[in-house]
């Protein structure tokens, strides 16, 4: 916890989509999600495909799919964003809120040079001349570690390697010094060495500019090394939320324990089989209609209350919230809970 006032505060966020043959029913893809991000803080949003982490990120940025219906509160510097018109967001994008997407090619134009695109980003926010915008573009490329930035600014995205493109996108997202950067799986497509460089770069930028960073990822290694706090999502709900050290060293929710157990061990264990979580995540409809805990069908600790009542978030330790009826029974060593070899 940084003790600073939250930059972004999300409370009871729900996101629903039309469902059923008439489209009149709705199914909730995100249910009662609350968290906040402070200045200079890195909060990791962790979960597997379909857990809702990217959807949450899009909703915060005002980029939710058109059919999505949202409720709850999303306050950015005290200002309510949920339900704001697109025009309300237009003043925030780039200047205050920025997105680093997973796929750099999806945001870079193939027909303009990288330098021109960065300069356009500057001029979309600040009234500066072309030469000044150009200089800012080159400086931004230099900041993200692109060698010979002045010359490279004249190159097209396809002339960059994957790692360089991702750096260019980070340069673009941060060129106007936004208050909050949302990075949606920013390194999934990169190889490990480049991944470390890019994450180091994002971490360094929040130190120099004081920006908050919401890091969406499914990689627990990345969380361990680059985030301050972590929010673990499963099937659209918060499972566990707290300081990274506490959550990863002593998970209180069986799902978090299962994620940790399924990582290849640092030291050989004698078995070539990994502990795995049985079964697969529920569909949107199954998750939304479950009377009890959404993880219960796959949980080795599931008992009666788990199948009938949704667990409410409870503070397991200072700043460490857990939604689990059996939180007191989760063993200290995650692998004790999950057997190896069951097909997941």
């Amino acid at each position: 916890m940084t003790g600073r006032p939250p930059l972004l505060s999300v409370a009871d966020l729900r996101v629903a989509f039309p469902d059923g043959p008439t489209g009149r029913d709705v199914v909730h893809a995100v249910r009662d999600v609350s968290f906040d991000v402070s200045e200079g803080e890195v909060l990791a949003l962790v979960g597997e495909s379909g857990a809702g982490k990217s959807l949450i990120a899009r909703v915060l940025l005002g980029m939710a799919p058109p059919t999505a219906r949202t409720s709850g509160r999303v306050r950015f510097r005290g200002r309510e964003l949920l339900g704001a018109a697109r025009s309300g967001y237009a003043g925030l994008w780039g200047r205050h809120l920025a997105l680093v997407p997973q796929d750099a090619l999806s945001v870079l134009s193939p027909v303009h040079t990288v330098g021109d695109q960065l300069a356009a980003a500057v001029r979309s926010v600040r009234r500066v001349g072309r030469a000044e915008a150009r200089a800012a573009a080159v400086a931004a490329l230099d900041r993200v570690g692109i060698a010979d930035a002045a010359r490279r600014a004249g190159a097209y995205p396809h002339e960059f390697s994957g790692g360089m493109r991702q750096r260019a996108v980070i340069a673009m997202a941060t060129i106007n010094e936004p208050d909050l950067v949302v990075a949606d799986e920013p390194t999934t497509a990169l190889d490990p060495d480049v991944r470390e460089q890019v994450l180091g770069l994002l971490a360094a930028l929040r130190e120099t500019t004081g920006a908050g960073l919401l890091l969406v990822t499914h990689d627990l290694d990345v969380v361990a090394r680059h985030a301050d706090r972590v929010l673990v999502l499963y099937a659209g709900e918060v499972v566990e939320y707290g300081p990274v050290k506490r959550v990863l060293e002593r998970p209180r929710a069986p799902y978090t324990a299962g994620l940790l157990a399924s990582l290849p061990p640092g030291e050989p264990t004698g078995s070539r089989l990994l502990p795995a979580i049985d079964g697969s995540p529920p569909s949107l409809r199954e998750a939304a209609s479950a009377p009890g805990c959404v993880f219960a069908p796959r949980c080795p600790l599931a008992a009666d209350p788990c199948r009938t009542r949704r667990p409410a978030p409870v503070e397991a330790a200072a700043g460490h919230l857990v939604s689990c009826h059996r939180r007191a029974d989760v063993p200290e060593v995650p692998t004790q809970l999950f057997g190896a070899g069951e097909a997941g």
Binding site: E48, L259, R272, G341, A343, G344
Partner: peptide, 15 residues
């Protein structure tokens, strides 16, 4: 693949 799914697929390949 996600970590928990990855473990299952790796186990399958070992078996």
């Amino acid at each position: 693949l996600d970590p928990s799914v990855r473990a299952g697929v790796l186990n399958l390949l070992v078996e």
